[in-house]
Simulated scan of single mutants.
Amino acid sequence: MKKILFIASFVAFAFTADAQQTPKTADTVKKAAPNLYNPAADAKADIAAAVKKANALHKNVLLQIGGNWCIWCLRFNDLVTQDTELNKYMNYNYVVLHVNYSKENMNEKVLADLGYPQRFGFPVFVVLDGKGTRLHTQNSSYLEEGKGHSKAKVMEFFENWSPKALDPKSYETKAK
């Protein structure tokens, strides 16, 4: 009898503890999901606005193409937003825009206009100048290290495609 009472009280305690947890409804799951990439966004208009802003600020545009479903996209974003040095350099030199690629919206026309960068997988990065000319498409696998991205490789990528690196004046030697 004591065993039955012990088992019954144990089961009742377990159900009580479980009932106190927040139920996982569709609303709570949606709120927890990352929201970097917006499938409903007008990528063409957003890119045009980013180019206009970059031109006015003498920056380049960094398109981060991927989706909220992509763990590597989220890892890259975490690195460049949480690392102070990378974040500062990126924001000083680039207007950053996340361009969605998902089953809800593949942005096929926009990606065709950018030279089909999705061929490299995700995330993939496209650098545009202040006039909207595509300067470079970066396969992110070259920036990976372990289960994330290498800070040194990402910084090198940012530096190599910054406005200063592409400015001919940076390479002119002064006549003596």
Rank of each mutant, 00 (worst) to 15 (best):
L97P: 11
L86N: 03
K44M: 04
Y92E: 15
A112D: 11
K59H: 07
A175K: 12
A48V: 05
F125E: 09
R75Y: 06
S150R: 05
N60Y: 10
A8D: 08
E172Q: 15
C70Y: 09
Q118Y: 06
G130V: 04
F13N: 04
P123Y: 04
M106Q: 08
K174Y: 15
V80E: 03
T81I: 00
F158P: 07
Q21K: 12
F157S: 01
P123R: 09
G115S: 10
P117G: 07
A26D: 13
K176Q: 10
A32I: 06
K44P: 01
D83F: 01
F10V: 14
N160K: 14
G148W: 11
D129I: 09
A165Q: 03
Y142N: 13
Q138K: 09
N139E: 03
V29F: 04
N35D: 07
Q82R: 02
W69K: 05
K169S: 13
I65E: 04
W69N: 06
T173L: 09
M106Y: 03
K103L: 12
E104H: 11
Y89M: 02
T81A: 01
Y92G: 15
Q82A: 01
H98R: 12
D113V: 03
A40F: 01
E104D: 14
I71G: 13
A41H: 02
A40T: 06
D83R: 03
S170M: 10
P168F: 06
L111K: 06
F76Q: 12
S162D: 13
N91H: 11
V99L: 01
A17Q: 14
Q82K: 05
N60T: 14
K109Y: 06
I4Q: 15
N60F: 11
R75M: 07
T28A: 11
F157I: 00
G67Q: 14
F158H: 08
D129K: 14
P34Y: 02
F122N: 09
V80R: 02
A112C: 06
A17K: 14
V99K: 03
E108M: 08
A12P: 10
T81D: 02
N91P: 11
I71T: 14
E85P: 02
Q21T: 05
T137R: 10
E104I: 04
S102Q: 09
K52H: 05
M90I: 00
L135G: 05
Q82H: 04
E156S: 07
F125V: 03
N107W: 00
L74N: 10
I7Q: 09
L74F: 04
N160A: 12
N77S: 03
S140H: 07
F158Y: 14
A152C: 10
N105L: 07
K103A: 13
D18T: 13
V29K: 11
I4L: 15
V61L: 06
G66W: 00
S141L: 09
L114D: 04
K151D: 01
K2V: 07
G66I: 00
A32Y: 04
K53P: 12
A48P: 08
